[in-house]
Amino acid sequence: MASSNSNAERTLRASLPSNLTDYHAFIQTTLDHLAQLGWGKCELFGIHMALEESISNAIRHGNKEDPAKRVQVECRLSPSRFWISVCDEGAGFQPESVPDCCAADRLEVIGGRGLALMQAYMTRLQYNDRGNCLVMEKVLAGPSPNGACCCE
């Protein structure tokens, strides 16, 4: 993992293997940096969720846990902004093709909740055209569209 620090912004970069255990250290390091920058418990929970779901999706659905493939992650962190790019080596997907897991008649469907959670906790979420690179951003001053931030 590579990192660079300035007073205002820290950047973390990692090339993660395609297994569902080795990325947790990167997530913890990112959360530790954010905590040092003053992010609160509730915001950290939402960012933890976005990190967990985006990276595990890239490994599981993007790279299909192929050990020959990597997931490239870059995070830019500041006291008021969390930005992340997650790219896998898979064929990509169209996020609009994912059924709404929150619809009343789909509540018992097992999968598809990761995307809904990322959208709820982040201020902005965007895939590239191919659908194998995700950029997300959370700006502390601005509430997320669904208001998923404060848990009090």
Binding site: K41, M49, C102, A104, L107, A120
Partner: peptide, 17 residues
């Protein structure tokens, strides 16, 4: 359920399931 975890259920509508 903690407030943070409850929010996960609420976002995904699983508080209704």
């Amino acid at each position: 359920i903690s407030p943070e975890i409850y929010q996960v259920f609420a976002i995904t509508n699983l508080d209704k399931l």
